[in-house]
Design a protein around this nucleic acid. Structure first.
Lengths: 217, 217
DNA sequence: GCGGGTCTCCACCTAAAGGTTGAGAGGTGG
DNA sequence: CCACCTCTCAACCTTTAGGTGGAGACCCGC
């Protein structure tokens, strides 16, 4: 009985590489490839694989959200996150979304196969680098003091280099309201300036590199 | 006579995928794989490939610098940049460093092979998306209006979320001087606020993700 | 219904950021 | 030597950002 694997990555080259890696192991069978989160969810429902290899950074629907949806709809399907970037939020975000493993793209073929088998058996398998981040998170609960929807929205605009006045125009509310939100954001993120907040947003991936605002290029 | 190709990427999965793609074409021969810029330069000298496939985002030595060194030492070796991110600076940076092609990792196998053959023949091959950036650069020379050493130094600190006063203390000069520098920076970068300047700095890689300043995490 | 949170806005304030002009010291290259 | 650039600082100004306190409207769960 082989383990059926669905590969998800927006880069065909990477999918090809993963397929190559997995085909080295006769116990594994690649049943499909998805190019974004939406495809991954749809294909997971249709194919019902044992394990989904999920890239986290993707267009259309990111891997964390895709993981969440797959796990909600198909609890028996295990998801292993696989990414090139290593960030606190990605690690904990993926785990919270229901991923059972977290691997880096620097992984060797055999480690990858091992992790997939472990996942199929319901066992957690983390890259040591990811484990470090997870431990850090657990030890310092970080009390992220979650931002509200509106605050997140404002922070995104701040992280695009926009001024309060401009944000106010864009959201069609008063500038004083923006100030209120920014104030909350600064205090919740425990930073001292909008610049720090913006950098934080970039750091945690709230905005992607190509959203940094026209005027900052 | 086959075209000898050297693959450079820090992710083994990607190298495996590229190898798989290239092996589909009998006219191409993968003669080696390098995991970072330094390795790429060394292997290029030893193997003297016809074309080097070069990832731009790598540790140890980035692809632009590696491209520059390879082109300087081995002018007969063509370099094709291959990356997942699409940025103005990467495109023009890679071309200036001597790359003859610029492809995205979303490329299909046959396009990739075509591009390598074109490169081996000394022909330019750009992903349409990259061409857009290049054209934009040429049309608006962007007059990078290079920052001076001191300005770069100040910008780095700005991009760590620090206030003028704090930067002044750190550099042991007056805050008014910092203001002067920041003013020059904003005008040279053609941005309107320190936040935009900071984002710009991050965007062009002046600071790495893990230098974003203690206070912004 | 009532507490709690969110979103909205107000007024008033201080601090920081940014614009403008000017200027002196030091270095470099023609 | 002179022109040019960089780095430094100054004074003065306007604008933006951020802090504080309060308030009304809305929604949701107990």
């Amino acid at each position: 009985m082989t383990i059926r694997v669905l590969i998800t990555d927006d880069h065909k080259v990477v999918r090809r590489g993963l397929r190559g890696f997995l085909e080295l192991d006769p116990a594994l069978e690649v049943v499909g490839e998805a190019g974004n989160g939406e495809e991954a969810v749809a294909m997971a429902q249709r194919l019902e694989p044992d394990v989904v290899l999920m890239d986290l950074l993707m267009p259309v629907m990111d891997g964390v959200e895709a993981t969440r949806q797959i796990r909600r709809r198909l609890p028996e399907v295990e998801v292993v996150a696989l990414t090139s970037v290593l960030e606190d939020v990605s690690v904990t975000g993926a785990i919270k979304a229901g991923a059972i493993g977290y691997l880096l793209k620097t992984t060797e073929a055999d480690e990858l196969c091992d992790a997939i088998k472990a996942a199929a058996a319901g066992k957690v398998q983390l890259a040591p680098e990811a484990a470090v981040h997870l431990v850090r998170e657990v030890r310092a609960p970080e009390s992220p003091e979650a931002l509200t929807g509106r605050e997140t929205q404002v922070l995104k605009l701040v992280a695009q280099g926009k001024a309060n006045k401009q944000i106010a125009r864009e959201l069609s509310i008063d500038e004083s309201t923006i100030k209120s939100h920014v104030h909350s954001i600064l205090s919740k993120l425990n930073v001292k300036s909008r610049t720090q907040a913006a950098l934080h947003a970039v750091y945690v991936g709230l905005v992607s590199a190509d959203e940094l605002g026209e005027e900052s290029r």
